[in-house]
Design a protein around this nucleic acid. Structure first.
Ligand SMILES: [Zn+2]
Ligand SMILES: [Zn+2]
Ligand SMILES: [Zn+2]
Ligand SMILES: [Zn+2]
Lengths: 134, 134
DNA sequence: TCTCGATATGTGATGTTATTACATTAGTCA
DNA sequence: TGACTAATGTAATAACATCACATATCGAGA
């Protein structure tokens, strides 16, 4: 079901920047990294991000105003469930996972309450195993 | 276990503003509503919000950069579980709830992965029952 | 091939959200 | 009193995001 999306030049540049990064980047950090490629304005980044988010290739981390490449590069659908993120406040590493039980419980609540969900954000802030023992 | 906190003047003003509102407010909206009470700068709002968040009297909605008074005004602890929010994109109404199963599953993941969580954000965006049938 | 419409891009200005830095005021307690 | 802490006031700045308008690119059909 994974549709291959033909990325435009700017989308490719932004996606590659995120893919190479070892953690989430802010839009302005991406902009700075792409100055050498001709990027001059935030909108160039935000427009590319908008598409990449649509395609499911990138996620937005609401709690830190940053963006990260999807951890499942060959399966951009996330068709079955909601995605959760654990964000380390020490090293910035993000772990992406999904949990069917959580997905079901959220769906249960929305069903029970007549709420039509369009997007769900689950972000766990804290300290990762590596940083916790360091 | 609910500790009564003595609020300062600014904290009281900000909390009352949020309590009277029928939905979440941005810090700058709060500021505007408090101009008549002598508020002149964002920091006055942010400093009060910081304390109110500490006390658990107010929640920050990460996905919309806004703040809302806790829906459980006489029990600011949230001691037992994580709080989730359903945010209507039509009318702005926020429903606050907590689900033990979700809390347990998140804890399970963090335990399994050695992740020390400090705060967890769960926000469901969509359309509430009232707006969905309107 | 030409024209049209849709999509993508370039650019400056502006809007929105949050913090830094420093000065001042008010309460607490030897 | 003096010394300390918490709270407040204010200006400036930083960080994040969008609007408005111009230009470019590309493909479907006349
Ligand atoms: Zn993903
Ligand atoms: Zn870490
Ligand atoms: Zn609450
Ligand atoms: Zn609604």
């Amino acid at each position: 079901m994974t549709t291959a999306h033909e990325l435009t030049k700017n989308q490719t540049l932004v996606f590659n920047t995120l893919s190479r990064a070892d953690g989430p980047l802010s839009a302005y950090t991406i902009l700075d990294q792409l100055r050498g490629d001709g990027f001059r304005a935030p909108l160039q980044v935000y427009r590319a991000l908008e598409k990449l988010l649509d395609y499911g290739m990138v996620h937005r981390l609401e709690s830190i105003n940053a963006f990260v490449a999807c951890a499942h590069p060959h399966n951009h659908s996330h068709s079955h469930g909601m995605t959760a993120f654990a964000i380390c406040e020490k090293c910035g590493q993000v772990s992406e996972f999904s949990d069917d039980v959580i997905t079901q419980r959220v769906r249960q609540w929305t069903t029970d309450n007549g709420f039509k969900q369009t997007k769900t954000t689950i972000e766990i802030r804290g300290v990762c195993a590596a940083c916790g023992t360091a």
